[in-house]
Each structure stands twice: as C-alpha cells, then as structure tokens.
Nucleic acid binder design. Structure first.
Lengths: 232, 232
DNA sequence: TCAAAATCTGAACCAAGATTCATAGTACGG
DNA sequence: CCGTACTATGAATCTTGGTTCAGATTTTGA
C-alpha cells in the first residue's frame, strides 16, 4: 500500500537565495513550488505549532490544493521535517562557517562575529526563530525521534565548534581555564535568553542591539572590577 | 449542550506536600485523587508532549477510567492547564520567595541562594523541567493563549524580582551599572542553558554541580583578569 | 490543432482519539 | 439489611483533520 507514488521526497535545499539553476527546466519550477510550500508552512508552523496547522491551511496559504502538497511530500510529517531540516542546515552551516574560518584570529573577535552572524540570520523574521526554539529547546517531543536526533547532532556540533574557540582563547591566556564546552553552553544560553526576549518584544529589545551587552557581560561579568576602567 | 456536568473545575493547588487538611473529608479524598491524576499526567506529558498523550493513557496510568477524568476536568486541555499552572505556581512562588526575603542581604548571596533553590526545585526529576521548558521556552503555542499569557506573566514577574536584586547590587556599587532587567535575562538564559544540558545528559552534567561555575562566570566573565588572583 | 502525459483539484473516505452516557458499583442513613 | 444518592466504568458516539483518487486542467510534442 505505501510508497505507491514515485514522487514525494524529502530533500535538503539551501533555502532562499537565487537558485544557481543548472537543472532540467521542469525540475527548477518544481523546486520553486516546493520552496513556496515550505515558506507558507514555516509561517504557519512557527505561529501555531505542528498540530494546530492543517494541511488545508498550508494548501490555502501556498495557493495549492491539498492534494498537490502530497505530490511534494509523503505526508504532513515529511513536510514538517523537510522544513525544519532545511532551515536548520542553513542556519547551522552559516554559523559553523564563522567559527571555523580564521583559526588564528583573535578569539574575542570570532565570538563577536559569531553573534553578529546569528543576528543576521534571524534578521529575516521571528518565524524561523520560533521554529528553532520549538525544536532545539523545550519541546523535544514535537516529532518522532529521527529528526530530533539529527537536529541535536547539529546543535551539538555547533557547540563543539564554539568550544574550540574558547579552547584557543584559553591556550592564548585570553580566557580563564574553564571547561570550554561549558563556556559554549553558557554563551549560547545567555544569547538565547535575549533571543527569547526579542521574540516576545521585538520592538523593545531588538536582538542586534543587545549584542554588545551580551559579549561584554560574557567577557567581563557583572561584578565591578576596581582595576579596570569601564569606559562608557 | 455544554456545561451539563456540575463538577469539572480547574482550580489551583500548591502541589505535593502533606495536605493540611481542613476539608469535609470527602473533599479531601477528591483532591488526593485529583492530584494523582495530575501526577500521572505530568509524567506522560513531559515525556511525549500534549498531543501524543491520549486520555486513555492518563487514565490507565492513574488507574481510573477515562470517564472519571472528566469528573475532575472539563476536557483534556483543562487538565493540561491545571497541571501546568499548579506546577508553575509552586515553582515561581518558591523562587520569588528567595528573591524577596532579605532585602538587605548581600546581592551575590541572594543570587547564590536563588540558583540553589532552582536546583532543589528541579532535583525532583526532569519531568517538571521538560514541561517547564515546553511552556516557558520555545513552543509558546502548546496551547491556546490564556494559559500562555498567565505563565509569561509569572515568568516576567520573576525576572523583575531578579532585576531588583541586581538593582540593589548596582546601588551598592557591587555590580556594574547595566540595565538590571537585562542582567536578569542574561543570568536566566545562562542558567537555562545548563538546565537544558542537564535534561539531555543528567548523569554527565548534574545541574547542581554547575551552580558554582554559573555564578562565577556570570559574576566575573571569561576574560582573564590580570589584577585578580583567580584562586583555583 | 490534437491526443497522450503529466499535474492539479477538492470532495469523499477513514482513522484516531476526545467526549458522552447508560449501566454497574458504592457509600450512607435509617 | 434496604433504598437513595452519588461515583466509576468503558463501550459507543462524534469530531477533527490527514490522506486518497476520480475527474478536470494544463503541458508537451508531433
């Protein structure tokens, strides 16, 4: 019974950007449509969460008939996974790149660029962020294992990359000799706290406005340091 | 049609502890049962999430018949809300108490006690924490508004309380003069990062083991301070 | 321009699971 | 030890929404 349709595949795709296009015309069109569906889905899922969104809704928003969705995705879950995965991959690969390039750059600058990159990624809108939180944080049960593990893997990987940066910093005597991985967790946590805040009150707490504070706080802490002159 | 049953109410209840009992016997029994249902529900919801748990399951685990659940709660959602709310209230009131008492105590100690209190609350098990994350973080769409707003309110309130502590610290020249609310967000974020870690690898990263690090890091930052002798 | 092939469409079908309710079981008062 | 009133039970409904599929529509290519 299952697997009767020859289509319906869940692939990965970089996301937005202009398709370099080197495909059989038809195929190109197909991908565009697929992407449109995913875009509509992102909007809806991030707003209401998996279970509250009906295939109906996605279809309507993407201006297709329900049946058509099934030409692109095996079922609702497949659609969701494709969405989350594609976004997550884009997200993580971008950040990873920042952390990886320039192995010998000043660790503090790397951290700074990392945060900026994160801000840029999110600048597009809160939709993706909500999805990100829903999956990475909290509700790890949004969907059957599989995807979960995969995502955790990605996130884990990112944390490790970040830890590397701290490691370097420690070796160079710039950072205190604390467990690098935990430092990564700490920085991520703090950052996410502000992202959370941003999601709730975008106007009042624009994320990119907090970058400096985050870094400063993470680097120097709250306690007043008599020795250091905290300019401004 | 609706509202035919005179029972099914969603009240608040402190949670576990020994009921002081000053109720009409029968009523007492009733509450005990209610609490048992909630306990079973917590277990299940935290494990699988709202939608993956059937009333069936809750009934079975609590050793009642499905129908009986409806004597206590209007419907599935009502049950869920009652659960989250009761837990959340316990959680927040406890923490708030810590932050509120001793207005004149050394801010750093207060923070320390705050973190400890949090650890204690969670010591009971990850179940509650998962629920906490599912609700506080990410998936703010787990259920129709209402509860959400209420929880945000609570959390917001806690943050404000925490901010007060920082305010005091700033006034006493112990902390740097940064936006207290943001400091609260930052500390919470960092803490949650480690909680997250704990949920994922309880044995490897027991939360209470991280307390010292969290506080230290938050107070002093990662950067090596030439002036200060970082003992150990 | 026409017919086969590929797509799209959305009403109809179906499964899952929440909710109801007639029936069976208990507790209480006399 | 009964009759009455309340409570528990779980099989039988009802709803929701995912999935299918027999046409309708469009594209291809000769």
């Amino acid at each position: 019974m299952p697997d009767s349709s020859p289509n319906a595949r869940a692939t990965a795709k970089p996301v937005p950007s202009a398709e370099p296009s080197k495909l059989p015309r038809r195929e190109r069109e197909r991908l565009r449509q697929r992407e449109e569906i995913l875009a509509a889905a992102l909007e809806l899922f991030s707003e209401k969460g998996f279970h509250r969104v009906r295939m109906q809704d996605i279809a309507r928003k993407a201006e297709f008939a329900v049946g058509t969705l099934y030409r692109f995705f095996k079922d609702k879950e497949d659609l969701y996974r494709a969405l989350v995965r594609s976004r997550a991959e884009h997200f993580h690969s971008t950040l990873k790149a920042v952390l990886t390039k320039n192995e010998r750059e000043d660790p503090v600058s790397v951290l700074k660029r990392y945060l900026e990159a994160k801000a840029n990624l999110l600048a597009g809108g809160v939709a993706m962020l909500k999805l990100y939180f829903a999956e990475t944080r909290g509700a790890r049960f949004s969907l059957r294992a599989g995807l979960d593990r995969e995502l955790l893997q990605l996130y884990e990987d990112l944390l490790r990359q970040l830890a590397r940066v701290f490691e370097r910093g420690i070796r160079r005597k710039v950072f205190r000799a604390l467990d690098p991985y935990k430092l990564a967790v700490a920085l991520e946590g703090m950052t996410n706290g502000f992202l959370q805040l941003w999601v709730e009150q975008p106007e009042r707490y624009p994320f990119d406005q907090q970058l400096a504070l985050i870094l400063d706080l993470f680097l120097h802490g709250v306690v007043i340091d008599e020795q250091r002159v905290q300019a401004r």
